[in-house]
Write a protein that binds this DNA or RNA. Structure first.
Lengths: 207, 207
DNA sequence: AAAAAAACGGAACCATTACTCCGTTTATTA
DNA sequence: TAATAAACGGAGTAATGGTTCCGTTTTTTT
C-alpha cells in the first residue's frame, strides 16, 4: 500500500522581490480571513495610536487570539513591516504618477502629499522614520524603492533648477523625517503648512 | 521634663521660581555629595546614551545604591527634569548674551549653536523635545523661559527684516525639534550643516 | 562616646509586553 | 461523515525596568 502523502502539494508562502508576503492559495479559508483582519486592524490602530500599542491590544480589537496573530506574524516587527509596506507602496505609486507633472511642481507636491498624509498618521510617520532615521544604514526592499522614487523626483527638480543642487536624497529623507516627527504630536494643519513653507523656500535656495 | 524637639529647625528643601531644587544647607554631607554625583553621572549618561537608560545603570555607574537615587529623585522623571534644567539654563544664558549682536546674526547663530550642541547630545535633544513636541500645551518654568529667550531673538530678527514675518516662536520650536530629532540618529555634522542651510534660507523667506 | 537622626543599599515587588506551548476547534479531504 | 491536517486561543513564560521597603551604616548632635 502506498504511503500517504500530502494530498496536494500546496504551494508555500513566498516573498516577492519587494519583500511583501505573497498570499498564495495555500491558506485555509479562516486563516486567510484572519490574516486580513489582523492587518486591517493593525493598520488602523498603528496609524491612530502609534507602533507602541501592544500586540494583545490588536488581537483583542480584531476579536482574535494572540496566538493567531503570532502565527501569521512571528514577531511584532514583521507585523509592523507588513503595515508599513503598504503605506510606502502607495506613496511610491503616487510619486511615479507625479513624474508626469512639471518637475519642480512634482517634487514639492510630493512633499506636501507626504506631510498631509502623515499628519495624524503615526504609522506612516514611523514608516518614513524607518528609512530616514539613520541615513548611513544602507536601505533595501521597499525602503530603497521609496528612496529611489523620491530621488528621481528630486533629480528632475534639480535639473529644472527648482531645487538647490547642494542637497542629496538622504538630506530630503532626513528633513522629511524631522518634519514628520514634529507633526507627530501636532496634528494642527496650520503648523504643517508653515513648516512646509519654510522647507520649500529653503530647498529652493539662494535667495 | 520638656519634650524632645528637633534640635535645630533645619531648613527644608524648596523649589525656586524656575523649578530647580534649591540645595539648601539641610543635607547631610554624604547626601549632598551623592546628589551631586548622581546628577553628574546622569547628565553624561543621558547625553551619550539617551533617556531610556535605566536608573539602575546610572546608580551602578555612580557607585551608589538604587535606593539612594530614588531618595534624591523620587521618580525617574524628576531626575530627567533636573538634568534637562541645567542644559536649558545654559542655553538661555547664551541667548541673552547673543542679544548684543546684530539681530539677524544673533538669531541664526543661536540656531547654529543649538544644533551644534545638540548633535550627539541626546539629553539636550530630549530637553528641547520636551518644550517643542506638543506646542499646544502651555509651558511653564524653565521651558517657558527658554521659549521667551528664543522669542526675543526671533522678534528682533524679524524687526530687522532678517526673518520672515509669518512665523511664530512655536514654529521655531517645532522646527528645532524636528531638526534635533533628525540629528539624534545622525551625528554627521555635514548633514547638520546642510539642514541648517535649508532652514536658514527657508526662514529668511520670499526668495 | 553614646544616642538620635539621616541616609544608604539592594533585594523584592509590580506592571508591562513580547513571545511560546499545547489542548481544543475548525476546515478540508477522501 | 469520519479521519486528518491546519489553525485557533489564551494561559503561561521571560525579560525589562520603575519603584518600594526595611535592615544596616554613617553622620551629626549632645
Amino acid at each position: 500500500m502506498p504511503e500517504k502523502e500530502p494530498s496536494q502539494a500546496r504551494e508555500d508562502k513566498g516573498t516577492n522581490s519587494t519583500g511583501a508576503v505573497t498570499t498564495g492559495k495555500s491558506l485555509r479559508a479562516d486563516a486567510r480571513r484572519n490574516r486580513e483582519r489582523i492587518l486591517d486592524v493593525a493598520t488602523k490602530v498603528f496609524a491612530t495610536e502609534g507602533l507602541e500599542v501592544p500586540i494583545d491590544e490588536i488581537a483583542n480589537r480584531a476579536g482574535i487570539g494572540i496566538g493567531t496573530v503570532y502565527r501569521h506574524f512571528p514577531t511584532k516587527e514583521e507585523l509592523i513591516e507588513a503595515v508599513v509596506f503598504s503605506f510606502k507602496q502607495r506613496l511610491i505609486e503616487k510619486a511615479r504618477e507625479m513624474l508626469e507633472q512639471d518637475p519642480g511642481q512634482a517634487f514639492f507636491h510630493f512633499l506636501s502629499l507626504i506631510v498631509r498624509e502623515g499628519t495624524g498618521n503615526k504609522a506612516l510617520i514611523a514608516a518614513l522614520a524607518r528609512s530616514g532615521a539613520d541615513i548611513r544604514r544602507p536601505l533595501s526592499g521597499i525602503s530603497l524603492d521609496f528612496q529611489n522614487a523620491l530621488g528621481e523626483l528630486l533629480n528632475c527638480a534639480q535639473q529644472a533648477g527648482s531645487v538647490r543642487n547642494d542637497i542629496q536624497v538622504t538630506d530630503i529623507t532626513a528633513i522629511l523625517f524631522g518634519v514628520m516627527r514634529t507633526l507627530e504630536y501636532n496634528d494642527d494643519s496650520g503648523l504643517a503648512e508653515r513648516i512646509l513653507l519654510v522647507v520649500r523656500d529653503g530647498l529652493r535656495g539662494h535667495c
